[in-house]
Design a protein around this nucleic acid. Structure first.
Lengths: 219, 219
DNA sequence: GATTGTGAAGTGTTTCACAGCA
DNA sequence: TGCTGTGAAACACTTCACAATC
C-alpha cells in the first residue's frame, strides 16, 4: 500500500545522515514519552541525542514544520509525523533468508513488530533446517521464496546467510519482487537499480572502536 | 600492548567515513586474495567496493604511501598495512554483557577471531543464566566484571542487554577499566570521555530501507 | 604507458545567527 | 520572552585533474 505523501518534501535529496538521525529521534522521543514528557525543545532533544540543536531543526525542515515557536515540539505529534516521514506509519512485511545464529537471533527479536516490521517468512537452503520451527515460523526452502513472497506480499528481505551465499539469496529475493534488502552478510552484492540495498556489518563498528582506542593511546 | 605507531598519520583528524571504508577495503581485499589476485589498481578495487578511485587513494593517503606508481597495490602488503592502520594487527580481548538472543548469536559467531577480536568473557545479571555455558564460555554474574576484566586484561566491551539495562552494563564496563564499548542496545548511554563508544542499531538501517522504498515509490 | 599521490575545485553537511512568530 | 525556521557562513568530505614516477 503506497501511502500518499503526507509530508511536504522540501528538497529531493535528503542526506543519508538525516534519515539515520530521524530514526534516532524517534527512539529517544519514545523514551521521553514513556517518562511522561509532553513537549520538548530542539535544545533538550539535541542534548538527549548528542547532536546540535540546529541540526535537529534542519533535519525536520526537510519534511515540513512540526514545531511551535516559543514552545517547542509536541512529542506525541512529532513521533507520529516522523514515523510518517520515515515510512513506518504502517508495518512492513519482511522475510529473512539464512537461519543461522544471527538469523535465529533476529527471528526471536521481539522488537520487530514494535518498530514497524513483521517477519512473515524464514528461508534457508539447508535441508536439515527446512521444516524446523523458529519463533513460530516454519523454515522453508529458499526455492519457494518467489511463490511465497507473492502470496504474502513481501516488501523487504533480510539476508543473514554466510557471505558466499549472500548473492544467491539476493537473486532469489529480487526474483521474488522484493523492493528492498538489508544485507548482514559480510559480502558486497549486486542488485538491479530499482531495489533498495543497505548493509549492516557490526565488525566495521568494532574496527572503528579498535581504531579510536589505538588513536587515543598514541596521543 | 599499545603498538608503536607503524604508520605515519598525515592528519590528526581522519573522517569517520574513511575508517568505515578501510574496514570495507580489508574485507574486499581478503576476498580478492582468496581468489588468487596479487596486485590491484585503485580503479579495480574501487569498482569492487563501489566507491570512487580517488576516494581510495585519498583514504590511504591519510596513513601513508602504500602503492607503486604505474603498477598498483600489492594486495598482501596492503591488507597488512591497513590492518596495522586500523589497529587490528593484534587480537583485541573482548567481553560481552547480556546473554540474550543477540548475545548468544554473537558468542557463537565464528568470525570474531578471524577478524581480530576474541570474546573471552560472557556476563549477565540473570541468575538463571549464570553458570550456563555458551560457546565454550561460562556465563558469569555482571558483578564479577571488574575482577575478571583485570585478571584477563580486557580492552573492549560489547553490550547486548535490553535497553533499560544498557547504562548499568556500561557503568560496570567503565569501572572494570575497559577502553572501548560497542553498544547494540537501542538506548543512548553516557561514558567518560576517555572511553570510546560506538552504537550499532540495525533498525536504523531498516528504517533507511523503508524510507528509500517509500521515496522511490513517490517519484 | 600506467597508475599513484595530491593540490585545487566542487559538492554536501553542519553550525551560526537572527528574523519571525506564538 | 522563548523557541522555531531558515538564509548565509563555515566546515568537511569527495571528486577532479594532473604532475610525479615506476
Amino acid at each position: 500500500m503506497p501511502n500518499p505523501r503526507l509530508f511536504s518534501l522540501k528538497s529531493d535529496s535528503i542526506p543519508r545522515a538525516t534519515i539515520q538521525r530521524l530514526a534516532l529521534y524517534v527512539q529517544v522521543l519514545e523514551d521521553l514519552q514513556r517518562e511522561g514528557a509532553d513537549v520538548i525543545s530542539s535544545e533538550s532533544l539535541a542534548k538527549a541525542c548528542d547532536v546540535n540543536p540546529s541540526q535537529i531543526r534542519k533535519d525536520l525542515a526537510y519534511f515540513g514544520k512540526f514545531g511551535v515557536r516559543g514552545v517547542g515540539y509536541y512529542i506525541q505529534d512529532l513521533i507520529a509525523s516522523l514515523k510518517r516521514c520515515l515510512g513506518i506509519d504502517h508495518t512492513w512485511k519482511t522475510v529473512l533468508v539464512g537461519v543461522g545464529n544471527l538469523g535465529r537471533a533476529l527471528l526471536n527479536h521481539k522488537e520487530f513488530k514494535l518498530r514497524g516490521f513483521e517477519v512473515i517468512g524464514a528461508f534457508d537452503c539447508d535441508p536439515f533446517k527446512i521444516g524446523e520451527e523458529v519463533s513460530g515460523l516454519e523454515v522453508m526452502c529458499t526455492k519457494r521464496l518467489m511463490e511465497k513472497s507473492h502470496e504474502l506480499g513481501v516488501e523487504i528481505g533480510i539476508i543473514t546467510t554466510p557471505p558466499e551465499r549472500a548473492q544467491r539469496a539476493a537473486n532469489h529475493l529480487v526474483e521474488a519482487g522484493i523492493k528492498g534488502i538489508l544485507n548482514f552478510a559480510p559480502a558486497r552484492i549486486t542488485v538491479p537499480e530499482h531495489v533498495v540495498l543497505e548493509y549492516v556489518d557490526f565488525f566495521h563498528h568494532l574496527y572503528s572502536v579498535a581504531f579510536n582506542i589505538t588513536l587515543s593511546q598514541q596521543k
